[in-house]
């Protein structure tokens, strides 16, 4: 039930509605819970609401950390 999907913000209409897209499918979601969201960012969408803006820097940082752990394994 807590399923949330990363979707790209294409446009933001006046009010708090945005058009978001994943894999060519677009839908309308509310940005009421993420007033800081901007066009071009990815948001986590849950039951018609964006519940958070995804942080690209943190994502890269996580991948880097995991790659380091993996590389250690490669050397072991």
């Amino acid at each position: 039930m807590c399923l949330a999907v990363p979707m790209l913000i294409k446009t933001i209409a006046p009010g708090d509605l945005a058009t978001v897209e994943i894999g060519g499918v677009e839908r309308q979601v509310s940005l009421l819970l993420t007033p800081e969201a901007r066009v071009g960012q990815y948001v986590l969408v849950h039951t018609g609401y964006a519940i958070n803006v995804l942080d690209a820097d943190e994502a890269q940082e996580t991948l880097k950390l995991l790659a380091e752990i993996g590389a250690l394994e490669g050397d072991a």
């Binding site: 990363p6 790209l8 990815y42 994502a59 890269q60 991948l63 790659a67 752990i69 993996g70 394994e73």
Partner: peptide, 23 residues
Amino acid sequence: MKYIDEFRDPALARQLVESIRRR
């Protein structure tokens, strides 16, 4: 960065599994 495929890399997953099993 689309936040899905990047986190499904099979080679890295195998290395993480090995790291967990060894630890």
